[in-house]
Nucleic acid binder design. Structure first.
Lengths: 336, 336
DNA sequence: GCATAACATGTTACCGTTAACAGACCGCCG
DNA sequence: CGGCGGTCTGTTAACGGTAACATGTTATGC
């Protein structure tokens, strides 16, 4: 690739003159400008952003560190982020941690070295380490989807507690009394919040002691295993609340294998919608989160920080979750 | 963020000594090494990859330019790419072009400026411009999923022709004689290939004149519109072949709205599987492509090129597509 | 006991770009 | 006609890191 020096030589001027043409700064005569532009075109010159970034200390690049892009919730989030970022001329480096703290730390180190201007982080665990790492190095950060025990960090997330409360109430109102929660890892704030919402709904119904909580991971395998375990319980729950979409899919498989019809014999409801695009038969009763908007808002917040705009206090933006009742939830068999 | 100079000052050595410690090169006394390491830890120093890249002319970063990450096929592809890249210490910048040539050109310019070591490109159109742009600037490139009219470029794609042939034959064997193809844009090679496979199957069955081809975009809206159009045709086709998953979903919506039961009254089969994770009710008969492996292989190919390994001739890796018969295809009503 | 090699550290220059400063030339004003 | 301001272009140094070279010190071998 040619450099500004090559262009300068070809146009018979100094590199500084070329730089002025590129950046439209200072004075250049019409004739020189044309000569330089011709040289640029002939050489197919593109400025070296590394050299620029080294001087300006900004790369116009942000990092998106999430757990798994194949989870449709995160896919949509990522799309919202990339759209909002590219609109303002920013590029996005994306990283999948698979919920591993070590992977996350590794990626943080890499993107810090690459001098990203900011980080959008879906933290793998509910610790303050990652945020502290970034703060020490002066890298702005917005935490996405989950809380971390650090009150001074910008956060954009869905309202897991209220969403879980809504979903549990929905099941209670259908007449269910034995509702099991198939939850994600306790260390992840969304799991803690969904548990809290579930508990609150049960408590309000005077059924606090009926809580049945299984703790696993936000994966299909874990959903499958938790459901198997649950099916062995006596008496069996009449409704399952899956704490995310993957758990729901895994659990559904287990229910199918056990020959249980949904929702006739057992109800199943979940947190996190699947994109409408993909729901061939709109089936799951869910609490959906506005993933695309969440990504947009987080990016706007981060880019505003980078531009030194907006309020200085840390923001916590909590987007509402919405209950969407579909076919997977119905009154319990006994109640019919 | 602190620099190598700050570390050097704190440790009372030259920057070169610090550099040697970081890179484990040359000779350093145990004592000096420890002093430097302490200084690094105290300052939370991370080396500036920009400065390094400026010297070495490699950024350990690749660009992934695709049309839309929310298409599950590309999501899985992207995941395969990121996994393969990060395993070798490479970061991935991702860009959504939404099938726009202008967006693609814009992104190419940006990533060229950012000095990515290579580009994985799902071209928005079947022109050689983008590949030429990269070649002029010496940026290695692997074209993904689609062909471009440039025989000298590495390509990794699925076998659209054979897959479409298989799927069409499947419908023919079920007894269908009026099979409509709801295709993507003719300018995209996968659409051309799927059309060719479809035509070949019909020709082989002596039904070449029965071909009915609708051309649209690879989107749900387009699938919906094409299906509406098709439903007005007399006589109506008994089977639809949707050229990708989004078209299939849009078409299914139109069929539902028209009150047509699938597959009893009309069959529907598609190219591109939906991830098993998301198929709540395995429903669509499809030709699936190994998206994750495609991403992996493309990345390996690109990284090998960067390392100067592997054959020098351009590669064309064509991965097989696989017919998966599920519930959306059945014999035509008349044949029952 | 002295050349020689191995070890340990520092200095200089460069990667590509641009801010800051420095000239050179022009016309215009008093 | 001397000086001043506007226009145009060039030189130098710096961003953070490292290769290549230089220098000094200590151990090794004969």
């Amino acid at each position: 690739m040619s450099t500004i020096g090559d262009v300068a030589k070809r146009a018979g001027v100094s590199t500084m003159t070329v730089s002025r043409v590129i950046n439209n700064s200072g004075y250049i005569s019409q004739e020189t400008r044309e000569r330089v532009e011709r040289a640029i075109a002939e050489l197919g010159y593109v400025p070296n952003a590394l050299a620029r970034s080294l001087r300006f200390k900004r790369t116009k690049t942000i990092a998106l560190i999430l757990t798994d892009i194949t989870n449709p919730f995160f896919t949509t989030l990522a799309r919202g982020i990339e759209d909002a970022a590219s609109e303002q001329g920013f590029s996005v480096i994306f990283c999948n941690t698979d919920e591993s703290k070590d992977e996350e730390a590794e990626y943080l180190s890499v993107v810090a070295q690459k001098q990203v201007d900011g980080v959008l982080l879906v933290p793998a665990s509910s610790s303050a380490e990652s945020v502290a790492f970034l703060r020490e190095r002066g890298i702005p950060c917005v935490v996405l989807d989950r809380r971390v025990p650090d009150s001074a960090v910008d956060t954009v997330r869905g309202d897991s507690e209220a969403g879980a409360h809504q979903l549990t109430r929905h099941l209670l109102e259908l007449g269910h009394r034995r509702i099991a929660l198939l939850n994600g890892p306790a260390a992840v704030s969304t799991a803690a919040d969904r548990l809290a919402g579930y508990r609150r709904a049960l408590d309000e119904a005077g059924l606090g002691s009926a809580a049945r909580v299984y703790e696993g991971a936000y994966t299909m395998e874990s959903g499958y295993r938790m459901a198997l375990q649950l099916l062995a319980d006596v008496p069996r729950p009449t409704a399952l609340f899956a704490a995310n979409n993957f758990i729901a899919i895994g659990a559904l498989r287990a229910l199918r294998e056990a020959g249980l019809r949904v929702p006739d014999e057992i109800s199943l409801a979940a947190f996190d919608d699947l994109p409408a695009a993909i729901m061939i038969e709109p089936f799951f009763t869910v609490v959906g989160q506005p993933a695309y908007e969440m990504g947009q808002q987080a990016t706007w917040l981060l880019l505003n920080r980078l531009a030194g705009q907006g309020p200085t206090e840390p923001q916590e933006i909590v987007l509402p979750a919405q209950l969407i009742v579909r076919q997977s939830s119905a009154p319990p068999p006994a109640a019919r």
